[in-house]
């Protein structure tokens, strides 16, 4: 799931911002292209693509800083849903 999630999240971001290059662990907010609009798109994308609703306590910057962290968030949410 985690690698698949990474791929899907990366594809979503690079489709929107094809000129930006970054690793899965890199802080995408530090690259300067994420505005409040795209942040909301990211939240909506993760909820739709992975069939989950991100709870308020998980909605903090630390969970969205990188592709890897977002994939970890997805893994936690999906395991919580089946657990």
């Amino acid at each position: 799931m985690s690698n698949d999630a990474r791929t899907q999240i990366r594809t979503f971001i690079t489709t929107k911002f094809p000129d930006v290059t970054f690793s899965d662990e890199e802080d995408i907010f530090a690259l300067g292209f994420v505005n409040s609009l795209f942040a909301m798109e990211l939240v909506m994308f993760i909820e739709k693509a992975f069939g989950t609703r991100i709870p308020n306590e998980e909605l903090h910057l630390g969970n969205f800083r990188s592709v890897a962290l977002m994939a970890d968030l997805v893994a936690r949410q999906t395991s919580a849903a089946v657990g």
């Binding site: 609009l37 942040a39 909605l59």
Partner: peptide
């Protein structure tokens, strides 16, 4: 949420 994610409430 507070902090960064509060912007998503407004958005």
């Amino acid at each position: 949420p507070q902090g960064w994610a509060a912007g998503t409430v407004m958005t």
